[in-house]
């Protein structure tokens, strides 16, 4: 059994929360640069120019890239031979609270009915998968409310198949329009169950924008959806253009013979995530 100190985990999580909120990931930055050169509309290019300036300024000043520092989402791959005295949930939560406090990040969590702010961005949303071995990988995502509100889960009928999936995803992007801060990134969970499809969809957003899905068939589906969505012409911030979506990431999982679960997690252009390994 490998023992990992909870305080070390907390310190790393705190650093990760502060860093991810102030440093745009390199793959996202490259897409912005591509958009600045390749977007067809003046208004769209101007948005990319502002977003690159915003990224530089945030990195320099340590002001958050976006005031919505999100709910703190964690996907954890924890080795079955790892032990964290005091608990992995506690260690992550403590690190998140410290990071949001010391980094002057916005606390955006509230009671759903009274709307009273919890004050420290708790609870951290933690998904743990146990994997063989004695490693520990923690991925963090700052997920803003504006894009999350545009996300949907639906239970399609198996007869609707790939055509039904495409139709639902494109319709979702049409209805969301300028609301989720396009250019967006789409995390899509196909299959699984009512609760795992959206979890898989969101986890897919942790992938690099320029990666290729290892299954060529899924890679082809991602390319097809990306082209379909970008044909809509919604453009950066809804001002028109060819960059509505920067990437489509699909996760496929087996499902019940009666079902075709589908989850679409919409991510804004401020795609803030980092990971740490122990």
């Amino acid at each position: 059994m490998r023992e990992i100190n909870g305080a070390d985990i907390s310190a790393a999580v705190a650093r990760m929360c502060m860093s991810a909120n102030t440093k745009l990931p390199d793959d996202v930055r490259r897409k912005f640069e591509e958009g600045l050169a390749g977007e067809t509309t003046d208004a769209g290019r101007e948005i990319f120019r502002q977003l690159l300036e915003n990224a530089d300024l945030a990195f320099e000043t340590k002001l958050p890239l976006c005031q919505d520092c999100g709910l703190a989402i964690f996907y954890v791959e924890m080795g079955e031979d790892v032990c964290v005295p005091g608990g992995i949930n506690e260690a992550i939560t403590e690190g998140m609270v410290t990071g949001y406090k010391d980094g002057f990040l916005r606390k955006s969590s509230c009671d759903p009915l009274t709307r009273k702010n919890t004050g420290d961005n708790t609870p951290a949303i933690i998904h743990i998968d146990f994997v063989p071995g004695d490693g520990l990988k923690i991925s963090y995502m700052a997920k803003g409310g504006g894009s999350e509100n545009m996300s949907r889960v639906t239970m399609l009928s198996p007869s609707q198949g790939w055509e039904g999936i495409k139709k639902f995803v494109v319709q979702r992007v049409v209805e969301a329009g300028p609301n989720p801060c396009p250019p967006i990134i789409l995390g899509i969970g196909i299959g699984g169950t009512f609760e795992t499809a959206p979890k898989n969809a969101k986890r897919a957003l942790l992938r690099k924008l320029d990666d290729t899905h290892p299954d060529p068939k899924v890679a082809e589906m991602e390319a097809e959806l990306l082209a379909a969505v970008n044909k809509l012409g919604i453009g950066p911030m809804g001002l028109g253009g060819s960059y509505t979506c920067l990437g489509v990431k699909i996760a496929v999982a087996p499902c019940h013979i009666a079902s075709l679960p589908l989850a679409v997690n919409v991510q804004c252009h401020s795609a803030r995530h980092e990971e740490v390994e122990f």
């Binding site: 915003n54 300024l57 945030a58 958050p64 976006c66 801060c181 911030m237």
Partner: peptide, 10 residues
Amino acid sequence: FGATGGAGAL
């Protein structure tokens, strides 16, 4: 008026 979403620092 629209302001640029996600340009909070700027």
